[in-house]
Amino acid sequence: MKKLSIIALLISSIVAHSALASDTTSKAQHASETKPIKFTKGEFTDKTIVKLNAIVARSLDSINKYDVIIVEIQELVQQAKEQASKKTKSEVQVKVKEIYALAEASALASKDMTAAVEVLKKSGEDYDPNILTGMTRFVERVKNEISSQKQILEESVNSI
């Protein structure tokens, strides 16, 4: 559920940016009749957008895998409680390790995004701050969502 709202936020940022770009001509024509329009900075360079999109894609991959694994863990924990099977408990532990790996991957993506944003800001390159903020928030929220589950998972495993 959270993933959908994060993606919706990112998409709405991109759509808003696209709408602004397509509406620029008509707004410019009416500039003398209205208040001056303050536009955001220019577009990202191709190199920067490829770099940032790769980081966002890593976060998206992590959250997609997380969504699958967390359901598997919940099912295995339920089975383990009902059957008290050592095999099922072992399977849960394997899946929990996968979540920990995703937590590490999403933390690394967040760190990489922070570094990329710093480089971008120091470069003087034009960029759209709204899109950059959407990308940064998405990566950070993925990291937070996955890492917040670690304690809950530990409690679930200990309850078996």
Rank of each mutant, 00 (worst) to 15 (best):
V94L: 06
S148H: 08
E140C: 00
Y127R: 09
R141Q: 08
R141A: 11
L120I: 07
V119F: 00
D126C: 02
I152D: 06
R137W: 05
L108G: 00
K122W: 03
K111I: 02
K121V: 14
K150H: 10
S123D: 03
F138I: 04
P129W: 12
K97F: 05
K143Y: 08
N144K: 07
A109M: 08
D128Y: 02
E104F: 01
K97M: 06
I131K: 03
N144V: 06
D112V: 06
I146C: 08
N144I: 00
I152R: 15
E140A: 14
L108T: 09
V142H: 02
E104I: 00
T133S: 10
T136R: 09
G134M: 04
I99S: 03
L108S: 01
I99Q: 00
S148Y: 09
E145W: 00
R141I: 09
K122R: 15
R137L: 15
D112C: 06
I146A: 08
A105D: 12
I152Q: 13
E98M: 07
D112E: 15
K111R: 07
A116C: 03
V119E: 15
I146K: 05
A105W: 00
T136W: 04
L102P: 06
T114W: 01
T133L: 06
K122P: 00
N144H: 13
E98C: 02
K122F: 08
P129N: 07
Y127S: 11
Q149W: 06
S110R: 12
K122V: 11
D126M: 12
Y127D: 01
L120Y: 08
F138P: 02
K95E: 13
V139K: 10
S123P: 03
E145Q: 14
V94H: 02
A115G: 05
N144Y: 08
A109T: 08
I146L: 06
N130A: 14
A116L: 11
K150A: 11
G134S: 13
A105S: 14
E104Q: 11
A115R: 02
V94Q: 00
Q151Y: 06
S106Y: 03
K143Q: 09
K95G: 05
T133W: 02
E125S: 10
